[in-house]
């Protein structure tokens, strides 16, 4: 019995190993092993993007933006790595070590947590590989070339401002009730929900009825909102720290035939479609592909010894039915 368990565990490890190299291998189009780091094309820089996991649209899209920009510059295929789960912090560190073994010209990382980020930066510094940090603009220890990302607190504020505006349009005054679906506890939630609440401080008659951890999960956003509607009869708006939760909330409002305004953060494909169809009221489009491209541009500036900012904030925009056309993928 124990033998079987051990064998199957080994089998699983082998499987998960395959899975990793399968999902993170450079896109096909580079036949054989010619894209190895040993022989980059003259002038081309081989770069690596390390994500927390490929389980969200955001972290699938961001490396694509980087890959496209690298291609434009005539660089070889990027190294695109991520552990399996967004909580696999040890996995991310060991993948970063593998990436460092490949000796890329530059690395950009979005740390699963501050500890993972700290270790990865240290390892890259030791290996003398220049490192960028993305999707985070709060500086950390170690030698980081630049931080590239959107300002999450500012993004939360934009959502808060939009919320106030939508409530005024609905109730004729800055007077109403909102609820907040947080993500799992951590910096992302603190910044996004914090920014949202900061913006609402200006409006004393907009009351926050409830705030709950929706675990970044659509179903959780849906059930929590349904529960809220049992209690808060006058709930005007639900803000989700991610689109998925806001989508869950909007479906809950629709099913309850309760006029509910909903705002999310991400600007994913399905949420943009929901904005177009009038299901989701608004989303903050943070444009992961733009972030990816910006990382590569910053790396290019570094290689060309151009001066640049230490913190590069990428653009974001509130998307409503009025301007969604410009953001929908063609």
């Amino acid at each position: 019995m124990v033998g079987v368990a051990a064998l199957s565990l080994i089998g699983m490890l082998a499987l998960s190993g395959c899975n990793n190299s399968g999902t993170s291998a450079p896109p096909s189009g580079s036949p054989g092993n010619s894209s190895g780091p040993a022989n980059p094309p003259p002038g081309g820089k081989r770069i690596a993007i390390i994500s927390p996991a490929k389980t969200s649209e955001f972290h699938n899209e961001l490396p694509k933006g980087a890959a496209d920009e690298a291609k434009k510059l005539g660089w070889p295929d990027i190294i695109d790595k991520a552990p399996q789960k967004e909580d696999d912090y040890a996995g991310q560190v060991s993948q970063a070590q593998d990436v460092i073994q490949q000796r890329p010209d530059a690395i950009s990382v979005c740390g699963i947590n501050p500890q993972a980020l700290d270790q990865i930066i240290k390892k890259a510094n030791d290996a003398k590989i220049p490192i960028w940090v993305h999707n985070q603009i709060t500086p950390v220890k170690g030698d980081v070339v630049a931080y590239v990302g959107y300002d999450e607190r500012e993004g939360g504020k934009l959502c808060g401002e939009k919320a106030a505006e939508l409530i005024k349009a609905k109730n004729g005054d800055y007077r109403g009730e909102v609820a907040i679906l947080d993500g799992e506890p951590g910096a992302h939630t603190d910044e996004r929900a914090g920014g949202f609440k900061d913006a609402l401080k200006k409006y004393p008659n907009i009351h926050i009825d409830a705030e709950q951890n929706g675990k970044w999960d659509r179903a959780m956003g849906n059930t929590t909102t349904k529960d809220w509607l049992q209690k808060y009869d006058k709930l005007d708006l639900v803000f989700g720290c991610s689109d998925a939760m806001a989508q869950g909330a909007s479906k809950a409002g629709a099913d309850a035939k309760h006029p509910l305004l909903t705002i999310g953060i991400d600007g994913n494909k399905t949420s943009l479609e929901d904005v177009r169809d009038g299901k989701l009221t608004a989303t903050l489009a943070v444009q992961p592909r733009v972030i990816g491209a910006t990382i590569v541009d910053s790396m290019n500036d570094y290689f060309n010894k151009k001066d640049q900012l230490k913190v590069i904030k990428t653009k974001m925009a509130i998307v409503t039915k009025d301007n969604v056309g410009a953001f929908l993928p063609k």
């Binding site: 999960d217 179903a219 849906n222 998925a244 989508q247 479906k251 399905t270």
Partner: peptide, 8 residues
């Protein structure tokens, strides 16, 4: 109930 078929 959520209106999306999602991998999550």
């Amino acid at each position: 109930s959520v209106g999306v078929a999602a991998p999550q």
